[in-house]
Each structure stands twice: as C-alpha cells, then as structure tokens.
Amino acid sequence: MSLATRIIPCLDVTGGRVVKGVNFVGLRDAGDPVEVAKRYDDQGADELTFLDITASSDGRDTMVQVVEQVAAQVFIPLTVGGGVRSIDDIRRLLNAGADKVSINTAAVQNPDLVRDAAGRFGSQCIVVAIDARRVPVDGPAKWEVFTHGGRRATGLDALVWGRRMQDAGAGEILLTSMDRDGTKLGFDLELVRAFSDELAIPVIASGGVGSLEHLSDGVLVGKADAVLAASIFHYGEFTVGQAKRVMAERGIEVRA
C-alpha cells in the first residue's frame, strides 16, 4: 500500500468556457467547465488543472465564477493557473474553491510572491509552474526558464530556479517542456528526471504526451510524482481510466 501516482487532466479556459476541442461522447455542452470537469471526475481523474488562457486581465472574474461552480460539484482537488499575479489574485481563487494556485510568469517577475503566498496560505496550495526549454550545450543537459506562455526567455537555469522556488516555499512544481509541448513525442524524460532527483517536493510532468505509454514513462523513467496531459484526453482518444489501467499494468500504483 502506498501513495498513488496522480493523473491530472488540464483544461484551458477563457471567457468562462473550456476551449481546445473537448470531445466526449454524450456531452451536452463541451464548453461547459462543470460538465467537462464532471466527466473527468467520473473517469477517475485524481485532480483537475484549469488554465486561464485569457490574454488580458479583463475576464479574470469569469475564472473565479468557473472555479466556484466546479468546486460546488466536483469533490477532487482543483488547481488554477494562468495570469496569477498577486496575493489578491491567489486569495480570490482559493476563496472561490481552488485548492492550489499555480504561479508562472509572476514568480519570475517577483520572486517574493511565492514566499509571501506560501507564508500566507501554506505551501500546500502554491504550485510553481516552470516552462523549460533545452539549451544547446556540450556536456550535461541544461534547460532555460521561459515565461509569458513560453515566448520570453529569462536566462534562468531551470533546475536552479526550481530549487529556489522550493526554498521559497512552493509545494510542488508543474514542469512543462517547451520542446515537447504539443509534439505528442512524450515528455522530456531527462528534464523530468533531473527535477525529480533534484527536488524534495513533488514534480508534475507536462508537455508532449501522445500516448498512454508516455504517461507511464514519465513515472517509471522520469520519476514524476504526477502526470498532466490535455489533448490525449480532450479529443476522446483515451480516457483517464484507460491511462490508469496501462499504468497499473506497468506496476505503477494508481487510484482505482
């Protein structure tokens, strides 16, 4: 008996609607966050992550309403990220029913934000999202942190940054490979493994999942504590239940 590896579907939300082709048989409204969340919940998702992809800061209130509606009906952990910039943003999302808030660009712009937030709300609800891209170097692999949805280079070494965020009080790291994101080639396993070995806090692997085997690889090879995926679940290719069966067959402990 031990801790189960988590499978986390990720939903992109804007204007109060789930976007990017959610394609389930029998959904009345594929854009309704509550309906989509319930479907993943039924499939056995261990957590859900909502990413607010609204570019401007208008419309943030809609995200708060989405969280309120989902939290009233889906009783598994909810993480919300995208555009979280201040203690006040975090408080509003937590009060709306989010269990964790994920901070990305704002953590780089203001490293004290993570420390303040962890001090105020507890490390358990502060996720630091790191978008990392490989740096072409000879010798040991290196990755650089990117912000603004992967568009802006920061010059920060991803592993050093991850350690700093852990020391600042992050409760876990959501680690996305920019090289693999959207490719369906699988996780950057070397990146995931480097983080998992380096950090004492849980690491969620993200970016590149194209098959169910990729999820297992993230755990068995990358040593990830949790795996996050979007498109393989959204387009109805696979269910979370199928993913868990494959993981269980490969000896990974999952929640039935």
């Binding site: 801790l3 189960a4 358990q124 876990e172 806090i201 849980p202 040593k223 504590d225």
Partner: peptide, 18 residues
Amino acid sequence: EDAGRRLKVPHMGWNQVR
C-alpha cells in the same frame, strides 16, 4: 526512501487508509 525512490514532502495525493 521507498523501493529506491525518493519520497517527497509534502505527502501529496491519494493514499490508502487502513
């Protein structure tokens, strides 16, 4: 450590209760 795997703190996720 458990079976050679580093155990993370916080203990986060779904675990069994006896």
